[in-house]
Structure formats: C-alpha cells, structure tokens
C-alpha cells in the first residue's frame, strides 16, 4: 500500500544521476562530517553522482547553526557525551546507536532547486520507511519531522551548499530515548520522542532499515533502481 503511495508521488523529472548508496555501519560523528564534506566537494567540482550515506553514530548531541546552546541543558558535560554545532538547520538533537542516520548528498539542481520541497520529500521518505515497520508515521504541517500522533519519531535538519545537500534525517529505530529527555530536542520542551521499538515492541536492524530507506528514497526522487 505504501509503495503505491510513493510511486504516485514520484518526482516527475526522474533523476539522470545515479544514486550511490553507502551503508557505513557505526561511524564516529566527526568521521561522518568528513565523509559528507568530501562528497559535497566532489559534487561541487563536477562529479555527477548523488550519494546516500546510511549509518549510526556513537552517542552525540548536535546543534543546528541557529540552535540554542541552552537546549542542551548541560547534558553533554553531565553525561560525558560530545556536542557539535554544525551547518544544518534545526535545534538540538541526539544521535546514537539504534538510530538510523541518513545523509543524502544530492544536487537539488536536478530536483527543482526548492529547499522546502526537498525537506518535504525527505520527510515523506522518512515517514514511508517507518510505515513499513507498522508505525503510523506522518509529517505534521509546520512541525518538520516525522510524528506518531504527538510523539516525534524522526528528525530532519539539512544544510545546503550551492544546491548540494548534506546532513539529513535521523530515524529512531531503538535508540536509548533517555538521551532525548536530557535535552530540549528540536527546540520543543514538551515533545515526547519515540521509536519503532517503543511503538511496536520490535525494531529492525540498522541494515534492514537502511535498505528500506534507500528504496523509498530512490522512488521518491526518481532514481533508477539500484543494487544497493
């Protein structure tokens, strides 16, 4: 049912570029930044392929460029977890084992040069992926991210450099949700974070969820099917 939903919304202009999907497993946050940086540079210098990085991080807090450090509530020091301020939109969030992190490095030039539209599509891909696991995941108008009723199950925050995207989405499969309680996630003090595990009692492996995300991403953005 969900596959059908996505294909009816497929991007009219199918992408000519290849999407290269990289399953990286568990990666230190700084290493993730380095890889993204290298790929963004390559694209800016003319390399036509788009990339999708799928991974998870060791526990880390990150802050968007406009995020308030107050929202960390001192959790970094208290818990001995590093914090990074990075070039993406959005507030403070947590990444850690059990959370699928997806970094699409794509040229928005081929997808309409419309940042909001990209964010919406990324949201939809994220929601569609989560729905495959039996969760009623939906975007909510005005509240970027993916939600199960009033509980937030995935966060979105991207950076764009000359229409090349980096950063992306974080989907809660089975992370330790206590880390979210230690901060003000996404600048929303009242939000309850949830996960596939919290909602259904089970959670997919990182690899499985990564495959599912890649599939949904290809369909939504009109890439040719791949081996990934």
């Amino acid at each position: 049912m969900d596959q059908a939903d996505i294909s009816t919304r497929r991007d009219a202009e199918a992408s000519c570029a290849e999407l290269r999907v990289h399953q990286l497993g568990r990666v230190a946050y700084e290493r993730g930044l380095e890889v993204q940086e290298a790929l963004v540079q390559a694209k800016l210098e003319g390399d036509g392929d788009d990339h999708l990085l799928l991974l998870e991080h060791e526990p880390v807090f990150t802050l968007g460029r406009g995020a308030r450090a107050d929202d960390l509530l001192g959790a970094g020091e208290r818990l001995g977890v590093p914090a990074h301020r990075v070039g993406r939109g959005g507030g403070v969030t947590y990444h850690g084992p059990g959370q699928l992190v997806a970094y699409p490095i794509v040229s928005l030039g081929a997808h309409g040069r419309d940042v909001h539209r990209y964010v919406r599509k990324l949201e939809e891909v994220t929601a569609a992926t989560l729905r495959l696991y039996g969760v009623d995941a939906q975007p909510r108008t005005g509240l970027t991210g993916v939600w199960v009723q009033a509980r937030k199950i995935a966060s979105i925050g991207i950076g764009v450099r000359r229409w090349v995207t980096f950063h992306g989405a974080a989907l809660n499969l089975s992370p330790d949700l206590d880390y979210f309680r230690a901060i003000v996630p996404c600048a929303m003090p009242e939000v309850t974070m949830t996960s596939i595990e919290r909602e259904t009692g089970r959670a997919p492996s990182l690899a499985d969820a990564g495959h599912a995300f890649a599939d949904c991403f290809r369909r939504m953005f009109g890439y040719p099917p791949g081996a990934a």
Binding site: Y29, E30, L33, E34, Q36, E37, V40, F61, A69, L72, G74, A75, G76, E77, V81, P82, A83, H84, R85, V86, G87, G159, R161, F166
Partner: peptide, 10 residues
C-alpha cells in the same frame, strides 16, 4: 561549516 571542533557542551 563541517569541521566544527567538538564542543564540550557550553
């Protein structure tokens, strides 16, 4: 932009 030094929470 990308290489922010890891910041012990402010």
């Amino acid at each position: 932009v990308a290489e922010e030094k890891p910041e012990r929470a402010a």
